[in-house]
């Protein structure tokens, strides 16, 4: 493992115990996922609802205890199930942060904006005097485009976009290197989405941040990401450079996802063909054997039912998990 990546995840598994009648069965939310993120890079993570995108982000930050796998951050092993490494996360909380999906429930309604943004500073004791704390908070608020006079207000007095800015300021307070953006724009209006996405890009340029950008809006992900990863039922299906994936999707699931992206031009839209998947997503408690996508795949063969396809490089770092050549 080289240390040129800020984050390396290999064979990460996250199972949750679920009571099914009298038995407790594992719900395989994330199953054997590997990827890397370079400094200053944005990896977009897409997939339909319930495929484990959010779980990946939260397990990375060790908000959940991983079932097995290996997480290496900036050369330091944070978790390794084989070597039994399980470090205390407190010092790393300063370097890895998260922006949450729902700007309404991710801010404590009983705290003022100043206290919300100031909490990471309090926890990590990043100031020497009250004045320094105040100055730092004002600077953060200015960075994310909030007025200084908003500091004494409560979160419920703001609009969705402003609330998301507060959440971003909170994540930036500890000056992290890496931020997990868990669908940060999906709860916002389209016009506000553009502002927030642009702000993410500006912050990346200014501070050299790396992002794991989780979303289900493919166009937003294409806009912000350097590379895109596609997930289905807890498995990684395809990873490629953003433009490569959009122009030349290999996995049948990625192809159907891309065909579902609305095209803002009726003439082109009429010509394009929608690949419509049949059936529903299988329950993660009753995973199909072999490839998880085979029950809905047009090209499924007997081999797909027997064995999980390996995650192989098809050239230029375009990784795909599919038997289909």
């Amino acid at each position: 493992m080289s240390s040129e990546n800020i984050l390396e995840v290999s064979h990460l598994k996250q199972y949750f115990p679920v009571k099914n009648g009298f038995r407790t069965v594992p719900l395989k939310a994330v199953d054997d996922i590997s990827f890397t993120i370079k400094p200053g890079e944005t990896l977009g993570l897409v997939g339909e609802s319930g495929c484990g995108k959010t779980t990946v982000g939260r397990t990375l930050l060790r908000l959940y205890q991983p079932t097995s796998g290996c997480i290496v951050f900036d050369g330091d092993v944070l978790y390794d199930s084989e070597k039994k490494i399980d470090v205390k996360m407190q010092p790393y909380r300063k370097q890895m942060q998260m922006v949450f999906q729902d700007p309404y429930s991710s801010l404590n309604p009983r705290m003022t904006v100043e206290d919300i943004i100031g909490e990471p500073l309090d926890v990590h004791k990043l100031y020497t005097s009250k004045g320094e704390r105040h100055d730092k908070i004002m600077e953060l608020m200015e960075t994310v485009g909030l007025n200084a006079e908003h500091a004494t207000r409560y979160a419920h007095e703001f609009s969705g976009g402003q609330r998301q800015r507060i959440g971003i300021a909170r994540a930036l307070a500890v000056d992290p290197k890496f931020i997990v953006c868990d669908e940060p724009v999906s709860a916002l209006d389209v016009s506000i989405q553009a502002q927030v996405v642009n702000m993410f890009e500006d912050l990346q340029k200014q501070r050299g941040l790396s992002y794991l950008f989780i979303a289900h809006d493919l166009l937003v992900v294409q806009h912000i990401s350097d590379r895109i990863a596609v997930m289905y039922l807890g498995h990684m299906m395809e990873i490629a450079d953003a433009d490569e994936l959009m122009d030349n999707p290999i996995h049948p699931y990625t192809q159907s996802l891309l065909s579902a992206v609305p095209i803002p031009d009726p003439k082109t839209a009429r010509k394009s063909q929608r690949i419509i998947l049949e059936g529903d997503v299988p329950s993660p408690l009753k995973m199909p054997s072999g490839c998880p996508f085979r029950t809905r795949c047009r090209y499924a063969t007997e081999q797909c039912a027997c064995e999980m396809p390996p995650f192989t490089d098809r050239g230029n770092g375009h990784m795909v998990a599919c038997w289909n050549k």
Binding site: Q90, R93, N108, G167
Partner: peptide, 16 residues
């Protein structure tokens, strides 16, 4: 609520 998760993410102690 997500703000509790956010607190955990920041590194806030249990009692706090």
């Amino acid at each position: 609520n997500e703000y509790v998760l956010a607190a955990k993410c920041i590194g806030t102690s249990t009692s706090r």
